[in-house]
């Protein structure tokens, strides 16, 4: 009796959570679905972005305090220029520092010459479609040094959000199995459909590699 009440309560909350988590994730699901399609179909003309990128070069005067390490120097420069973003490709010599600052759809390659006191910024701006595409792939992964991880707070929040969306989607799937199981007698094809879905995944993940 107690078990029956417990499972009924579980089924009730599972169904409610399935509906409301699904509704909460709606815009995120659409964003990643559309951007996924755009990434897989670079030939779609309406969404071309690379050809329509805007490149600008600016030179400005800058003073950088001495005696700081590379990251502190770069952060001081960014504060001076009033820019923020994910720092990568950092290379510092006694005379200069080169680095990249990225936010989705906007990349800045900076070269600061300490002796001349100048900063050269090469900026690359993408259009709306470019921004949508880079949102899909923006995870602050540092190819040269993966151990560094994200160094911009907003990147960390974005990565956390992507993880949370992924976990939310996994929950939606598991909750859907529970919901179907409770009404399986009315939807008899469910077992076959679910097994077929698993078969597709197993084929691509394991069987193809073995073949």
């Amino acid at each position: 009796m107690k078990y029956s009440v417990f499972f009924k309560g579980l089924a009730y909350w599972n169904r409610r959570l399935h509906i409301h988590i699904g509704l909460f994730l709606l815009l995120f699901i659409w964003l990643f679905s559309f951007s996924g399609l755009l990434l897989n179909h670079s030939s779609w003309d309406f969404a071309s972005f690379w050809e329509q990128r805007k490149e600008t070069k600016t030179v400005s005067n800058i003073s950088v305090p001495k005696g700081l390490d590379s990251l502190q120097t770069v952060k001081k420069i960014m504060l001076n220029l009033n820019i923020s973003g994910e720092i990568s490709n950092l290379k510092m010599t006694p005379d200069s520092v080169d680095f990249r600052v990225s936010v989705p759809g906007h990349i800045r390659n900076l070269h600061v010459d300490f002796n001349k006191g100048i900063c050269i910024q090469n900026e690359l701006r993408y259009n709306f479609w470019g921004k949508i595409k880079t949102l899909h792939t923006f995870n602050a992964a540092n190819r040269e040094n993966p151990a560094l991880g994200a160094n911009w707070l907003v990147s960390k929040i974005w990565i956390f959000s992507m993880d949370a969306i992924a976990i939310g989607l996994i929950y939606l799937c598991i909750s859907s199995w529970i919901m179907w199981y409770n009404i399986r007698k009315s939807y008899r094809w469910g077992t076959i459909v679910l097994i077929t879905g698993f078969a597709v995944v197993i084929y691509f993940l394991f069987i193809l590699g073995m073949l």
């Binding site: 992924a166 799937c173 459909v193 679910l194 879905g197 698993f198």
Partner: peptide, 13 residues
């Protein structure tokens, strides 16, 4: 939903 669920889990992982 049932058919896609294993694929959604793989994409999420």
């Amino acid at each position: 939903g049932l058919f896609l669920s294993p694929l959604i889990i793989i994409f999420s992982i």
